[in-house]
Simulated assay, not measured.
Amino acid sequence: MTDNFLEPQSLGVPCPRCQRDLQLKKGRYGLFVGCSGYPECDYMTAADFDPGTDVSCPSCQQGKLVQKTSRFGHSFYACDGYPACKFSVPLPPVAESCPTCNYPLLLRKRTTAGERLVCGNSECDYKSEIR
């Protein structure tokens, strides 16, 4: 049994370096776009399926929070202004302010009982009702 998703898939877009076809590939840290002419051409870029959220960074107020993957395969959300801003959270952000402390960011937490919103401020213990 073969899994076609793991095999390189042609995107029909030419490589900006060598004009060969770009392919969607699966690597050690997830999906990426690479040249079909590898190893002669080593062009590579990220596969931006979820380029980010509409949530502003509460630390620098200039960047947006984008989903990233750690080297261990775990997802997290970090400011796109890295390395100037090193803000990150482990849960999906929601652009709502906390009703208790007015922190401009809530996090969506999924549990076995359901889903709830928790405050992004580590000093606040706000938790919404389970949905």
Score class of each variant (00 low, 15 high):
99 P>T: 04
74 H>D: 12
127 K>Y: 13
116 R>P: 07
72 F>N: 00
50 D>R: 10
121 N>K: 06
55 V>A: 01
91 L>S: 02
96 E>S: 10
121 N>M: 03
120 G>F: 03
58 P>R: 01
103 Y>W: 09
76 F>S: 08
72 F>Q: 06
30 G>F: 01
45 T>N: 05
19 Q>W: 00
61 Q>I: 14
19 Q>L: 09
47 A>E: 08
46 A>Q: 12
129 E>F: 08
7 E>Q: 15
76 F>A: 10
13 V>Q: 14
80 D>A: 06
106 L>T: 02
100 T>Q: 14
88 S>R: 15
71 R>M: 10
60 C>K: 07
41 C>A: 09
63 G>H: 07
33 V>H: 03
130 I>Y: 07
85 C>A: 02
12 G>T: 08
35 C>W: 09
28 R>W: 00
112 T>C: 07
86 K>C: 09
78 A>T: 10
1 M>F: 15
15 C>R: 09
21 D>W: 02
45 T>D: 09
59 S>W: 07
18 C>G: 04
117 L>P: 07
7 E>N: 15
130 I>T: 12
26 K>M: 08
35 C>F: 10
59 S>V: 00
81 G>F: 05
95 A>N: 11
33 V>N: 04
121 N>C: 04
11 L>D: 09
36 S>R: 10
56 S>R: 15
109 K>A: 02
72 F>P: 00
34 G>M: 12
97 S>I: 01
121 N>Q: 05
25 K>H: 04
85 C>G: 06
8 P>D: 11
5 F>T: 14
90 P>Y: 01
99 P>I: 03
18 C>F: 09
66 V>Y: 10
69 T>P: 00
100 T>I: 08
53 T>I: 13
93 P>N: 04
103 Y>D: 03
89 V>C: 08
122 S>V: 04
43 Y>V: 06
117 L>K: 08
96 E>Y: 03
46 A>M: 09
105 L>D: 03
7 E>M: 15
10 S>L: 08
60 C>H: 08
78 A>Q: 11
54 D>C: 11
22 L>V: 06
22 L>D: 02
2 T>E: 15
91 L>W: 01
6 L>F: 15
89 V>I: 10
41 C>P: 03
39 P>M: 07
45 T>M: 11
110 R>D: 12
18 C>T: 07
18 C>W: 06
83 P>A: 05
25 K>Q: 10
59 S>A: 15
108 R>T: 02
49 F>I: 13
53 T>W: 10
15 C>L: 03
100 T>W: 11
26 K>I: 01
